[in-house]
């Protein structure tokens, strides 16, 4: 076990930035993470999202939801590998971006595929397992987004951690949803994400086992 010891060359990374530095990092993260959404909005207004703009909106928001979800799961391993404890303080924003893109993804589906008509939408969700799976992933993320405030973290105490364990099944469902709509041989991207998720989950399981062995 390398409990939080920085690997070589990561010493500067491990140093916690000043409050001002951290604030700048948060603003920078906000600008970068919001860029795909911004580009979609501009593209939509200027008619530059290709000949099937709804498909572009759906695909792009969905893919970024998954990427940010994987990024939140990468935070803890990064902290352990680099000793940069402060990265945890960016995690909430990354998670909220994942929720934002997943919500946009659902909104595009609800508005353009169904014109917000509830009954056909529910029928569609119930009938098509891949939509149901994606929808479940989003529903799992909802309480996480709602309880991401400082107040809720304090109020829930130990249970906050237990609740936020839901991010794992959420990520798995999101990935299954992605795999499910692949046609023919376009497996590269979902396989990369699956490999990343497997590494993140596997690393946690391995670490837990290590902790249990040491403590037990």
């Amino acid at each position: 076990m390398r409990g939080g010891q920085p690997v070589m060359g990561a010493a500067t990374l491990a140093r916690t930035p000043s409050p001002a530095g951290l604030r700048a990092l948060r603003v920078g993260l906000f600008a970068v993470a919001g860029l795909p959404a911004m580009m979609l909005a501009v593209g939509l207004v200027q008619g530059e999202l290709g000949v099937n703009p709804v498909e572009t909106l759906l695909d792009t928001t969905g893919i970024w939801a998954l990427r940010f979800l994987l990024a939140t799961l990468a935070v803890t391993p990064i902290r352990w590998l680099t000793g940069a404890v402060w990265v945890v303080r960016l995690r909430r924003q990354v998670g909220l971006w994942a929720f934002f893109y997943a919500s946009c993804h659902f909104a595009v589906f609800a508005v353009f595929d169904h014109g917000l008509a509830l009954a056909p939408m529910i029928e569609d969700i119930a009938k098509r397992p891949f939509i149901l799976v994606g929808m479940s992933g989003l529903l799992l993320m909802l309480p996480l987004a709602l309880t991401s405030t400082r107040g809720w973290i304090r109020r829930l105490g130990k249970r906050w951690r237990q609740l936020h364990w839901l991010v794992y099944p959420g990520a798995v469902l999101g990935l299954v949803h992605f795999f499910w709509l692949i046609r023919a041989n376009r497996w590269t991207e979902p396989l990369i994400y699956a490999a990343l998720l497997a590494v993140f989950l596997g690393w946690r399981a391995w670490r837990r086992r290590g902790v249990a062995l040491r403590d037990g």
Partner: peptide
Amino acid sequence: PRWSQARERRIG
């Protein structure tokens, strides 16, 4: 099996 064929999106 994975999506509905009841409706379609006309390109444009």
